[in-house]
């Protein structure tokens, strides 16, 4: 398993954000759905190794992320795009991606080619020498995706990656996700259930810090009925599962 977490628990003060959550993911594109405050971003941070659970076990890429050596090894094979990210306004797009390639300890001789390839995959090669501050919100998001994929990660974590992308870019991005999911485990946290329906092979649904559904998009769609809220089958399935858990 690329991701194998058991009974992880995280508290922020009195509030339990992740509550004995189990999750196992392998190669492919996985969707992570849930309402606001469900714990999706915290879960992504745990998987990105920037937040530590108070309890439970986390194994990434077959390695328990306990000691610093293992953590470093895992991080070389990780790609992470947070929900919102700070960037260096004076950096060009190329410099931004190069910098993260360096932080990910890629061999120096591989960096120029890897950066160009990552920028090409997100459609920003023609803007490579523009400063980050001159980009639109959607382009900055794509630069963020480029830094996440520059090291060809085996585990790619994308938190709301399609926020700010126009419809055409979202279609292209879904194609990129499918391409990346051939060799890597890609976890996409999103509110857009239609992205999950089209691009993901499996979907996990969290609510109140717990995993309440895990299956294929078709299985999620099948959970809904005509009486459930939503404009599509998968939206109706999503609301039906949430309603059943909260009942």
């Amino acid at each position: 398993m690329t991701v194998d977490i058991e009974k992880i628990r995280i508290r922020y003060g009195r509030r339990v954000v992740l509550d004995d959550l189990d999750l196992a993911l392998d190669t492919g594109v996985h969707g992570l759905l849930g309402p606001n405050g469900a714990g999706k971003t915290t879960l992504m941070r745990v998987l990105a190794t920037v937040a530590r659970p108070d309890a439970g076990a986390v194994r990434l890429l077959g390695t328990p992320i306990g000691d610093a050596k293992a953590l470093r090894r895992v991080r070389r094979q990780l790609g992470y795009l947070p929900q919102s990210f700070g960037f260096y306004p004076r950096f060009t797009v190329r410099e931004f991606v190069e910098y993260f390639a360096w932080l990910k300890e890629m061999p120096a001789e591989r960096i120029p080619v890897a950066v160009d390839r990552a920028l090409e995959r997100v459609g920003l090669l023609d803007r490579a020498d523009d400063r980050m501050r001159t980009l639109s919100g959607g382009m900055q998001r794509r630069a963020g995706i480029a830094q996440a994929i520059v090291n060809d990660p085996r585990l790619l974590l994308l938190d709301e990656p399609t926020a700010g992308l126009d419809p055409e870019q979202r279609v292209e991005f879904r194609a990129l996700l499918r391409e990346l999911g051939v060799d890597a485990c890609v976890l996409v946290s999103t509110h857009l259930v239609e992205d999950v329906a089209v691009a993901c092979e499996r979907v996990s649904l969290v609510d109140g810090g717990r995993l309440i559904f895990s299956g294929t998009p078709e299985q999620l769609a099948a959970a809904g009925g005509d009486g459930d809220a939503g404009d599509s089958a998968i939206e109706r399935g999503y609301t039906a599962v949430l309603r059943a858990v909260r009942a």
Partner: peptide, 14 residues
């Protein structure tokens, strides 16, 4: 600190 500490800390840099 960098512009995004979380993003940087998720990298293997010591």
């Amino acid at each position: 600190a960098g512009a995004d500490e979380l993003l940087e800390r998720g990298t293997p840099t010591p």
